[in-house]
Amino acid sequence: MSCFDTLTSYGLRSIGIGERLLPKSDFTLCDQVVLIGSGMIWNVYFAVLALSLGFFFAVSLALGRNSDNALFRIPAHAFIFVIRGSPLFIQFFLIYEAFVLIPKMGWDINLGFIEITVETKWLTKAWLGALITLFLNTAGYTANIFYGALQSIPKGDIEAALAIGMSKRQIFWRISFPTMLRLAWPSYTNEAIFLFHATALVFFSSFPAWRQKGDSLYYASYFADKTFNPFVPYPIIAVYFISFTLLIILLFGYVNRRLNRHVASNT
């Protein structure tokens, strides 16, 4: 089988498209690179969705934590404390255990043009269950970063806004929020990298792999197990992670420059 054939048969194997059976013997370097790369689809999926959804939840949590109302402040604080205070590994286990306890049910939801069935059994599948865990995790960490940034917004800026008669709403959207993002961005970049790396932990979580569809580490360990040689698959997956990390750094660096373009002292 040529490498191109391998790519067409296994390139999308991790999402169930292509050959049903994984290669069993005569593993080539190409097999390993393609299948592990196929698994990276899931790592990217987890990272992108958890980060983008987590961002919004994190902003609400940070505002809750910063609020004068104890009804918002205390739950937000407690949530951030538990998430930041415990290893993700243990969070994965506990959330999986909680999800299997939920009775299996389904609802039909009519969206007008299409009717979809929402089922609770999805929660115990990695694509949703692990995503929720990562989402909660990144929301907790990001909220703490944003909260710290909110606290560091210069008082003068807000006083100036009040002085020119801005409403509370205007102050938030025009002053607090953009300043918070600008101050928090370097730390948030780190958090994005950490979260992306944390997607590798899905393999070690309790969420099972269905029909041999798994993340990159699933395939890497498959090859390590079959070839009994850890020195090929794990460096391959390491190279994939380094490349994607560089991409994150570039992307977030671009946003950072946009956020800071009006700041004069930016040398």
Binding site: H197, L201, L217, A224, Y234, A238, I242, T245
Partner: peptide
Amino acid sequence: MVRGVPDIIFFLF
């Protein structure tokens, strides 16, 4: 380089 690789994968080999 080390920052680019998840610690789990680093520990595996």
